[in-house]
Design a binder for these strands. Structure first.
Lengths: 334, 334
DNA sequence: GACACCGCCTAGAACGTTCTAGAGTCGATC
DNA sequence: GATCGACTCTAGAACGTTCTAGGCGGTGTC
């Protein structure tokens, strides 16, 4: 049934040339005349020859392959993948993906990439301890996206999260809010700490320390929902959240709790995930610049692979506020 | 900086045994004493040896590797990936992913998997013409999920979509609706045709042909939104949509158009994507049984790879209606 | 006319693994 | 004490590719 795939040798035999020459033609490398090039390509097409990337990589050491770990539960990661594919294609690299799912942890995901011998690792919001990432980075280039890592070998491309929360708070204050709460992303992630810090700084900068309130949350919808229940006893007039997922969970509980958004309470998310654009979520949120983030991440990985000098280990991109329908001036009655 | 990865030869030299023996130990194959096994493993651990899956697959022909094509724009596919990983792990297979993005089409995605020499292809809702899929399937096992393919070589694991729309319509009719519209998935997908057919059948079965109305849509949010604008001139009391994404787009336009859901108009989606569970979308929808679909798909791929006899080329799973907050009895005024 | 050079091509090794065939050792059986 | 089988181990080929080194004509230079 499944007949063996044709190899370089098959094409070579059919075209009456050597294996090496076919290899040259397939790689578009110099060393073949236009005439034979044409003939070989014709045969390859006819036999439906597909190069075997395994053998190719095995022999040629350098792999032009970037391993990407993403989380299936993070809608935002889907947007990042789109950007990464585009950026990689731009510089002639391939991507190989490994997903984290509820039943497949980050260590497993990374392990499978290591066996694939990709040339570098791009991790979307890694949760592993810095020491572990560092150990990995001592053996191959590792780019951490959207999370700072305090280890000299790990490259970081991320958004300025402190600034991001500043934007969110500034926006709310400008609208007239004072009683603004923040639902953080839990204690595991540095991004969470940064955003929390940004919130605190901004509140302080506006002289609103007295109104500051941080509720412990997480990155999932249910985390936002839980935080919302906690807030309902003494609702603020506005909330900023760690991310859009958490914000939607929060929104839901607020709505069911009888508050209307944004007239009773304003909500700001983070990430500008594609679903936050969904018109009837219509979430005001802090956008990360996906194109810049992904382009830089790929560029950095390639620099490391090809041994180019790297200037800044950590690159921090400014965020941008996207105002949609979940924020407005505070209700006069409150 | 990046020092060369240790190979079998390194481990063998360090442990004072042959390369072949180390291979035996690493594969947990018979032919090594407990004592050496222990010693070799210790050395491997110390050197942090990682088997090179490329070389391994290259040599051993059979790859225990399933190539999966998924769409980054389909939140439902993320749920499927989770199931596929679990099912594959269960039977000792690996997954290699290739994503379709707005800038990376299905042909490209499949092409990269072919180069990886995976043993079979699992395609989530493929859009390619049946002839093309068939040609592919003549060379290697191909499992199409959630889409029927009329070609004898392509295996199909899908939900009974005709039945699914029946469930949706039955539910609405039971609530008292008569003027029920359907927003389809466009003309490219067979699943779309099936669901449209299911809708028509069901309407007819209830003697409601006169009320039937099909609006052309698609699988994206904007397709649902567009359809909604079309419906607004003469709104039905209920709508079923091709999928959840389309339903959310539709919901949004309806809400902005001044209709409230579900009191003015009921909406039923399709897929039970994780976001449809988001409390404040809270969509009534037709669920596909992810665990069964993924388990069967992996089992089928493995059967084909290992040459086991296959009984039914196409397996059709019953859907299940999940009633949430977007459906209720029709408003008496309409 | 010898030499160098260039463009086109090929032979054969190498990548890291698995597989096949067989070598060596030991204890048991005849 | 030879033969056998079971067990442990090893040498070397093979997988499909790329890379290195070189061969073979032809053209140009001195």
């Amino acid at each position: 049934m499944t007949t063996a795939r044709p190899t370089l040798a098959d094409v070579a035999a059919e075209a009456g040339v050597s294996v090496a020459l076919v290899s040259i033609v397939m790689r578009d490398a110099p060393g073949a005349s236009a005439a034979t090039r044409e003939r070989v390509l014709e045969v390859a097409r006819r036999l439906d020859y597909q190069p075997d990337s395994r053998a190719r990589l095995l022999r040629s050491g350098h792999s032009r392959l970037l391993g990407v770990v993403f989380g299936v539960q993070h809608p935002f990661h889907a947007d990042m993948l789109t950007g990464l594919y585009a950026a990689a294609a731009q510089v002639g690299y391939e991507l190989t993906l490994s997903a984290m799912t509820p039943g497949r942890d980050e260590r497993t995901a990374i392990g499978s990439l290591l066996q694939d011998r990709c040339a570098a690792l791009v991790l979307l919001g890694p949760q592993l301890p810095a020491a572990e990432l560092g150990a990995l980075a001592d053996r191959m280039p590792v780019v951490s996206m959207m999370r700072g890592v305090r280890h000299k070998a790990v490259d970081v491309i991320r958004t300025d999260d402190v600034r991001g929360e500043h934007l969110a708070v500034d926006h709310l204050v400008e609208l007239g809010h004072r009683k603004i709460a923040h639902v953080d992303g839990g204690r595991r992630m540095i991004a969470s700490a940064d955003r929390r810090q940004g919130y605190r700084d901004a509140m302080k900068g506006h002289g609103l320390e007295a109104y500051a309130r941080v509720v412990s949350g997480g990155f999932l919808e249910e985390d936002g929902a839980k935080a919302a229940r906690e807030l309902l006893d003494d609702p603020p007039t506005a909330v900023t959240t760690f991310n859009d997922m958490s914000a939607t969970g929060l929104l839901d509980v607020l709505l069911r709790g009888g508050l209307s958004v944004p007239s009773d309470i304003s909500v700001v998310g983070y990430d500008d995930s594609s679903f936050s654009r969904l018109a009837h979520i219509d979430l005001t949120t802090v956008a990360q610049d996906i194109e810049t983030l992904t382009t830089l991440a790929v560029a950095r990985a390639v620099e490391r692979i090809e041994g180019a000098p790297v200037v800044h280990r950590e690159v921090v991109i400014p965020p941008r506020l996207v105002v949609r329908g979940t924020t407005t001036i505070p209700s006069p009655s409150r």
